Deep mutational scan, measured.
Amino acid sequence: MKVTIEENEETGKFTIKVKTEDGEEKTIEIPKENLEEILAKLPPNVEII
């Protein structure tokens, strides 16, 4: 699983794009305050880009 994290400076939010092993892609946008909480919940086999 690969996770790409991009900061949107205009909105102050982060866009998180997840690509699973089977090629499925999902995108979510979260507030900056929630980034550490989300990262802590990721499984250890995740590659963060």
Rank of each mutant, 00 (worst) to 15 (best):
Lys41Val: 09
Glu9Pro: 13
Val3Arg: 00
Asp22Tyr: 10
Glu25Met: 08
Glu47Met: 12
Thr20His: 11
Thr4Gln: 06
Asp22Arg: 07
Gly12Tyr: 02
Leu39Val: 03
Glu37Ile: 09
Glu29Gln: 09
Thr15Trp: 08
Glu7Val: 13
Ile28Glu: 04
Val3Gln: 01
Glu24Met: 11
Thr11Ala: 04
Glu36Cys: 13
Phe14Met: 07
Glu47Asn: 07
Ile48His: 04
Glu6Ala: 06
Lys19Asp: 06
Ile28Thr: 06
Glu10Cys: 13
Lys32Glu: 04
Glu37Asp: 11
Leu42Lys: 01
Pro44Glu: 10
Pro44Gly: 08
Glu47Gly: 07
Glu29Ser: 10
Lys41Arg: 11
Leu39Ser: 00
Thr11Arg: 05
Glu21Phe: 06
Asp22Leu: 10
Glu37Arg: 03
Ile49Gly: 04
Gly23His: 03
Pro43Met: 05
Val3Ser: 01
Phe14Trp: 10
Pro44Tyr: 12
Glu36Leu: 11
Ile48Arg: 01
Pro31Leu: 12
Ile16Pro: 00
Ile16Thr: 00
Pro31Thr: 14
Gly23Trp: 02
Ile5Glu: 03
Ile5Leu: 05
Met1Ser: 07
Phe14Pro: 01
Val18Asn: 00
Ile28Met: 12
Lys32Arg: 14
Ile49Ala: 04
Asn45Tyr: 12
Ile5Gly: 01
Val3Pro: 02
Ile38Glu: 13
Leu42Ala: 00
Glu24Trp: 08
Asn45Ala: 06
Glu10Asp: 13
Leu42Tyr: 09
Asn34Trp: 15
Ile28Asn: 02
Lys26Val: 13
Lys17Phe: 13
Pro31Lys: 11
Leu42Pro: 04
Asn34Leu: 14
Thr20Tyr: 15
Ala40Pro: 02
Lys26Thr: 14
Glu29Ile: 14
Gly23Lys: 01
Glu36Met: 10
Lys2Gln: 13
Lys13Ala: 07
Glu6Asn: 06
Glu37Pro: 03
Ile16Arg: 00
Asn8Gln: 05
Lys19Leu: 15
Ile5Pro: 00
Phe14Ile: 12
Asn8Met: 04
Glu37Lys: 07
Glu9Ser: 14
Gly12Asn: 06
Glu29Arg: 04
Glu10Trp: 11
Ile16Val: 10
Val18His: 02
Thr11Gln: 05
Ile48Met: 05
Lys2Leu: 11
Lys32His: 08
Asn8Leu: 04
Leu35His: 01
Ile49Arg: 00
Glu24Leu: 10
Thr20Val: 07
Glu25Phe: 11
Met1Asn: 05
Thr11Val: 04
Glu21His: 05
Thr27Ile: 15
Pro44Lys: 06
Ile49Pro: 03
Lys13Ser: 11
Ile30Asn: 00
Glu29Asp: 05
Asn34Pro: 02
Lys26Ile: 15
Glu6Met: 12
Lys32Gly: 11
Ala40Trp: 04
Glu10Lys: 13
Ile38His: 06
Pro44Arg: 01
Pro31Val: 09
Glu7Gln: 08
Ile48Pro: 02
Ile16Tyr: 03
Lys17Arg: 09
Ile38Gln: 07
Glu29Val: 15
Pro44Ala: 09
Glu33Arg: 05
Asn45Pro: 06
Val46Trp: 10
Asn8Arg: 02
Thr11Lys: 06
Val3Asp: 02
Glu25Tyr: 08
Leu35Ile: 08
Ile28Phe: 15
Pro31Asp: 15
Lys2Ala: 06
Ile30Ala: 05
Val46Met: 06
Glu10Tyr: 09
Pro43Gly: 15
Val46Arg: 06
Glu9Gly: 10
Lys13Leu: 12
Glu29Ala: 04
Ile5Phe: 03
Leu39Cys: 04
Leu39Lys: 03
Thr11His: 05
Ile48Val: 12
Phe14Thr: 05
Val3Tyr: 05
Glu10Gln: 11
Ile28Cys: 15
Glu21Trp: 09
Val3Cys: 07
Glu6Ile: 15
Phe14Asp: 01
Ala40Leu: 10
Thr27Ala: 03
Lys32Asn: 04
Lys17Cys: 07
Ile28Gln: 03
Pro43Lys: 03
Met1Leu: 11
Glu10Ala: 13
Glu33Ser: 11
Leu42Trp: 06
Lys13Cys: 13
Ile38Tyr: 15
Glu37Thr: 10
Lys26Asp: 06
Ile48Asn: 02
Thr4Pro: 03
Thr11Gly: 08
Pro31Phe: 14
Glu9Met: 14
Glu24Gln: 12
Asn8Thr: 04
Glu33Met: 06
Asp22Ala: 07
Lys2His: 10
Glu29Tyr: 12
Ile30Ser: 03
Lys19Tyr: 15
Phe14Gly: 03
Glu24Ile: 12
Glu37Gly: 08
Met1Lys: 01
Glu21Gly: 07
Glu33Val: 09
Ile49Leu: 09
Asn34Lys: 14
Glu25Gln: 06
Ile5Tyr: 02
Glu24His: 10
Glu21Leu: 05
Thr11Ser: 08
Pro31Cys: 06
Thr20Ile: 07
Ala40Arg: 06
Ile30Lys: 00
Asn34Tyr: 14
Asn8Phe: 04
Lys13Asp: 10
Glu6Gly: 02
Val3His: 01
Lys2Ser: 12
Glu36Pro: 12
Glu29Asn: 06
Lys2Phe: 13
Met1Arg: 00
Glu9Ala: 13
Glu9Phe: 13
Gly12Leu: 02
Glu36Ile: 12
Ile48Gln: 03
Glu7His: 13
Ala40Ile: 03
Lys13His: 12
Asp22Phe: 09
Thr15Lys: 05
Lys13Arg: 14
Ile49Thr: 08
Gly12Trp: 03
Val46Glu: 02
Val46Tyr: 11
Glu7Phe: 15
Ile5Asp: 00
Lys41Leu: 14
Pro43Ser: 06
Lys13Ile: 14
Leu35Ser: 00
Glu33Lys: 06
Val46His: 04
Leu42Gln: 00
Ile48Thr: 02
Ile48Ser: 02
Lys13Glu: 10
Ile48Leu: 09
Lys32Pro: 12
Ile30Val: 15
Val3Asn: 01
Gly23Asp: 02
Glu24Gly: 10
Ile16His: 00
Val3Ala: 01
Glu47Trp: 03
Glu47Ala: 07
Ile30Trp: 03
Gly23Val: 00
Glu33Asp: 10
Lys26Trp: 15
Glu29Leu: 10
Val3Ile: 11
Glu21Lys: 04
Lys26Ser: 12
Lys41Asp: 09
Lys41Thr: 12
Pro44Trp: 13
Lys32Met: 09
Asn34Arg: 14
Val3Lys: 00
Lys32Gln: 07
Ile38Cys: 12
Gly23Asn: 04
Asn8Gly: 05
Val46Gly: 03
Glu6Thr: 13
Asn8Ser: 06
Glu36Tyr: 13
Leu42Val: 04
Ala40Lys: 10
Glu7Asn: 06
Glu6Lys: 04
Lys19Met: 14
Leu39Ile: 07
Lys32Cys: 08
Lys32Tyr: 11
Glu33Pro: 03
Asn45Trp: 15
Glu6Ser: 12
Asn34Val: 14
Thr27Asp: 03
Ala40Gln: 10
Gly12His: 03
Ile28Val: 11
Glu36Asn: 09
Val3Trp: 11
Glu33Asn: 07
Ile5Lys: 01
Thr4Asp: 02
Glu47Leu: 13
Thr11Pro: 05
Ile16Asp: 02
Thr11Asp: 09
Glu33Trp: 11
Thr15Glu: 05
Lys26Tyr: 15
Glu10His: 11
Ile30Tyr: 05
